[in-house]
């Protein structure tokens, strides 16, 4: 049977992708950010999964325009990196595990998540930057990736509690897939940031650190942070943190925290990152 063995959360700042693509990792500005990912780059070598279920938000690259699904799953065999206005990132094609994606879709609907299937889309920095941070710059990604998109940009966005339940439903779906597969769930985005107006550049280190403190072992109260509270405390884009909740819920009750990292700034954003192994 398939099983969820580990989870990763990380910010997905586009400038981090550009720094990787342009070879700026050793620059004074970027070195302290990339240092935070040295652990995971080693860890993943021994813990490469068969499939990553990668929970992220599309940034007006494939969605948000004509159709705005709350939860959606990528259902093409392959996904190219999106041209977000400066050309496509030079990263490998992302390959789906279509049978598992189909099974998850079936199970999610049984579990009352009426998920949208996307037959064609390009994947933007929300998906490719985390892959680059963890796997570096390989010729091909070393595993299959199932993109799961959450609308966190256009209100009404889903609640943290709903995202938690989605994570639980993904966990149940994976557990009932008959093939013997090692699956990880990644949640990307955050931490605090706001990208417009007189509050632009908002960083709430206290909020961010508390979020990381509680996520591993006492995530219960994080479920009930309202969307308004995210906006006020963590900025308009800080609400991306609800995708970390999908990851955490998918890992089940107990986790072992292997890594935590927090750093300000990367461009406009506070960078956060954790690695968890599932206990059961």
């Amino acid at each position: 049977m398939a099983r969820i063995t580990a989870g990763i959360a990380t910010s997905h700042v586009p400038a981090i992708g550009a720094a990787i693509d342009l070879g700026k990792q050793k620059d004074l500005y970027w070195a302290p950010v990339f240092q935070g990912y040295e652990f995971v780059k080693e860890w993943i070598k021994k813990n490469t999964p068969d499939v990553v279920i990668l929970v992220y938000n599309d940034h007006a690259s494939a969605l948000m325009m004509d159709i705005i699904p709350t939860f959606a799953i990528g259902f093409a065999e392959e996904f190219l990196s999106a041209d977000e206005g400066w050309g496509r990132r030079p990263v490998p094609v992302v390959k789906n595990h279509i049978e598992l994606a189909a099974h998850i879709s079936e199970q999610l609907v049984i579990d009352e998540f009426d998920i949208t299937l996307i037959n064609e889309m390009d994947v933007d920095h929300g998906l490719t930057v985390p892959l680059s941070l963890v796997f570096g710059q390989p010729e091909e990604w070393p595993c299959k990736v199932i993109p799961v998109c959450v609308n966190v940009s256009q209100f009404p966005t889903p609640s943290g509690e709903r995202c938690w339940k989605l994570g639980e439903a993904i966990r149940n779906a994976v557990k009932t897939f008959p093939e013997d597969l090692d699956v990880q769930v990644w949640g990307t985005g955050g931490m605090s940031h706001q990208l417009h107006g007189s509050r632009a550049g908002l960083i709430n280190e206290e909020f961010d650190r508390k979020f990381i403190d509680l996520l591993a072992h006492e995530p219960e109260e994080l479920k009930y942070i309202t969307r308004l509270e995210y906006l006020r405390e963590a900025g308009t884009e800080g609400i991306e943190l609800i995708m970390w909740l999908v990851m955490r819920a998918a890992l089940g009750y107990g986790v072992e925290e292997k890594k935590r990292f927090y750093r300000v700034p990367a461009s406009n954003t506070a960078v956060g990152h954790v690695v968890y192994e599932a206990k059961s």
Binding site: A200, R232, E233, V264, S267
Partner: peptide
């Protein structure tokens, strides 16, 4: 134009002031 420059353009600060604020830990809520 970088995303940081675009964002700073809406903040009422100059790009340099904004970049400095971010390096110093960002805007306090």
């Amino acid at each position: 134009m970088s995303a940081q420059k675009a964002v700073s353009a809406t903040s009422g600060m100059s790009a340099d002031e904004y970049a400095k604020m971010m390096l110093e830990g960002g805007r306090n809520p």
